[in-house]
Write a protein that binds this DNA or RNA. Structure first.
Lengths: 202, 202
DNA sequence: TTTATATTGACAGTTGACTCTCATTTGGCG
DNA sequence: CGCCAAATGAGAGTCAACTGTCAATATAAA
């Protein structure tokens, strides 16, 4: 009773091994995807590279697609946003969040994020997944925005605003990836997100 | 020499039959996709329904995916936009265009557009295609915007603005599809696109 | 009508994602 | 140590997209 599956638990060898295996599979998969593309990489190849049997691959991931993990950043962004004062202009709140807690996450996972994002931008077959996630993100952002304004999350106006924010996001991340991550992502946000509060201005 | 393959040529029986077959395959494919989903529909089923052999299916379409044709609307939008005065605010220009020539196209193909769009929103496997197109659209819009403002189409600011416009678009189309096309798409645009010129306002 | 050519169907075969089963190994624990 | 349950691998099997070949048929041209 004392130990749930909290991070505090010592974690037996079995569990540790499983995590490592999972990580190894994912890592090798990414490597191969990046090298040869998603479609051109077979599950057998991934299994080989990760030194597990194909059966084992499917025990860890229900499908080849599932190897591409979901984005943890957008949910984190949504959560962090809720902590911002409700009367702060929305775009400002987003920027503040990205320079704060979420920005730290991005910094930490920079390398993997770069690789992963590059794949999902490059490989046509991988985009489906990415778009699905993006949809989820939009809903999250819309929910937050709805809370802040006291409006309905299903409100079209709210949805459009959330979509616009995410779109600018995506554009900036793409730019960041194309520049091999040399620029500072947080700074890109800070510089270009205000476009939306200015009303484009074109 | 007198007759190329122009539309004026009488078009032999052979050619006419081919077109009909092509049309029939596509039509049946759409019907089945709408009824059972993209993944759940096999090429054999499509071939059966279109009364051709599976071989013939692949003679007409190199892959199952290719049955879903590309979007002609966004390029049309870009072209129509170039005809608008350069000093008109961008969002206004877009709205005017959508209420004009492009709106007419949308009206004309309403049924097919509704069906096709529903598929590409509903079916995960189909999204990849859709996103690729969307990317093309963004580039088109960015190009137009660049021309109008005399800036570089690669300018991040320009790209962000184009992305935001397309994002709001997509959101509105999705809403339209979810409401089975009962609302007037042009009116939705007119009502919600100004969000971007107002600077969100949240 | 006869001949050349384009279109088609039947069919066999390949490939890769994914499932299932069963025997073997391996970490957890008394 | 020794038992149990979890984790793994081997291998056979399914399913659907896609390829290639060949013979039959339909159209166009002479």
């Amino acid at each position: 009773m004392t130990t749930h599956e909290t991070s505090a638990a010592p974690l037996g060898l079995r569990e540790r091994k499983k995590r490592k295996t999972r990580e190894r599979i994912r890592h090798e998969a990414y490597r191969l995807f990046a090298a040869h593309g998603y479609e051109a990489t077979t599950v057998d190849q991934i299994a080989d590279a990760a030194e597990v049997s194909p059966s084992t691959f499917f025990r860890y991931f229900p499908s080849k697609e599932d190897v591409v993990l979901q984005d943890e950043y957008d949910p984190a962004l949504a959560e962090a946003l809720r902590a911002r004062p409700a009367d702060e202009p929305f775009v400002d709140a987003v920027i503040a969040t990205l320079k704060g807690p979420v920005g730290a996450m991005l910094q930490r996972d920079r390398e993997e994020l770069l690789l992963r994002t590059r794949i999902s931008f490059t490989d046509p077959a991988m985009r489906a997944r990415h778009v699905a996630e993006q949809q989820r993100s939009e809903n999250e952002i819309a929910a937050v925005l709805a809370e802040r304004t006291g409006r309905d999350p299903a409100d079209l106006e709210i949805k459009c605003a959330a979509a616009a924010v995410i779109a600018v996001f995506t554009t900036l991340v793409r730019h960041w990836v194309e520049g091999d991550g040399r620029e500072d992502l947080a700074e890109l946000y800070e510089r270009h997100l205000p476009l939306l509060s200015r009303g484009l201005g074109f």
